[in-house]
Write a protein that binds this DNA or RNA. Structure first.
Lengths: 209, 209
DNA sequence: TAGATTGTTAATCGATTAACAATC
DNA sequence: TAGATTGTTAATCGATTAACAATC
């Protein structure tokens, strides 16, 4: 497993490249230069090549990259297999419910197989509406263990963030996408990506003046 | 205007500190050390102090920071005044509608005063449901100009991202929060914060294996 | 004064970019 | 072979961390 030593930023950009490659594939393009792919992804060609260095020797000097080949190589590294990756979502408030409805995930190879909430009202009302079973958060740990879920999306209030993370970690989840405004501390072998909408907006306000 | 030369990262963290300070204020704490505030925000104390250096000389050696004073100083720098900052949202699909419903923004001092969509069905159906007027995207430029809006949230499909951004830029919007999976190019005097949910999830999948 | 903690400079670290040799 | 473009090393840049003098 040499995975561990690809920088976080590079991994993120690899996922951007992959989306661009998908698009190119649909357009019937089958070869692309680092210059063109980089500009599509919004990075410098030299950075793209550096990033692809982690994937291996995937291009052809003088020619460029084969769209299909490269896409396959990245998929290999990223573990983006053809099966849908199961994900659980915790917190079915405004944002959580929105994410449940958001169809974009499935298209990218992820499926929210179950959701959890502490509020029995949410549990009841959303189960039918969403097409996804919503359980009480008490059952979270067991469910995750039973289904071997490795990824979770946290959309609970800040005050509940850490305790939810603790349960997930204990149950074996290794990657968390955290929308709660809580700073999560997890063991070193787990990863958290934080998306803090309010902070994004506030920080943007600074530049708007 | 010395604003310009505060690093983006620092601005983002300042907004984190502010949230922590708010919390402390509610708890009735009135003095905090860099060590404690840093740990609340999930950063190193030394980084916190560096960041606060941009705000000015705001602490007292030997004592720490006054919660109220510091919060006020950061607000001053960030332009987070007491009036609600008006924001427009473009794209009322799954994600956009979710963001409209998301009450968190208002609490942070932002108000989505209008939403826009290209699809007349969305326009019609969501206006009443949301409590926010939803207009056809054709009127976007004029509306923004008339109301002097400086911030916008983009939640349209990737293919429409750039053209929406162009309209906003032309109409004078200076800060964009972009949820569309499009790489936006804007003039140097405008800022874009990108939030790419699918890319976050894909990149997370790498670490989940 | 002694203890504590900031503000700031210098050192380190990591990530981005430039340059160019390898090679299709 | 000549032209193009990758892969990779070295140089640059910026951000984080450590150290410590200033000072409450």
């Amino acid at each position: 497993m040499e995975k561990i030593d690809i920088p976080k930023r590079t991994v993120y950009r690899l996922s951007l490249y992959q989306r661009c490659l998908q698009q190119l594939k649909e357009e019937g393009v089958d070869t692309v230069s680092s210059e063109d792919l980089a500009s599509a992804a919004g990075v410098k060609p030299t950075q793209l090549r550096k990033d692809l260095g982690y994937v291996g020797q995937v291009g052809t000097r003088g020619l460029g990259y084969g769209v299909g080949t490269l896409s396959g190589a990245i998929s290999g590294i990223m573990g983006t297999s053809s099966v849908l990756q199961p994900v659980v979502l915790i917190g079915v408030g405004n944002l959580g419910a929105a994410l449940l409805r958001y169809s974009g995930f499935r298209k990218e190879g992820f499926e929210i197989i179950a959701a959890f909430d502490a509020d029995p009202c949410h549990v009841k009302s959303t189960t039918e509406e969403m097409g996804v079973p919503v359980h009480h958060v008490d059952g979270l740990g067991d469910y995750v263990k039973q289904h071997g879920v490795k990824m979770a999306i946290i959309a609970v209030p800040g005050s509940a963030g850490q305790s939810v993370a603790d349960v997930l970690v204990e149950a074996g989840v290794s990657a968390l996408l955290n929308f709660s405004p809580a700073v999560l501390s997890v063991p070193d072998d787990r990863v958290v990506n934080q998306v803090d909408l309010a902070a994004e907006l506030r920080s943007l306000a600074f530049f708007a003046s």
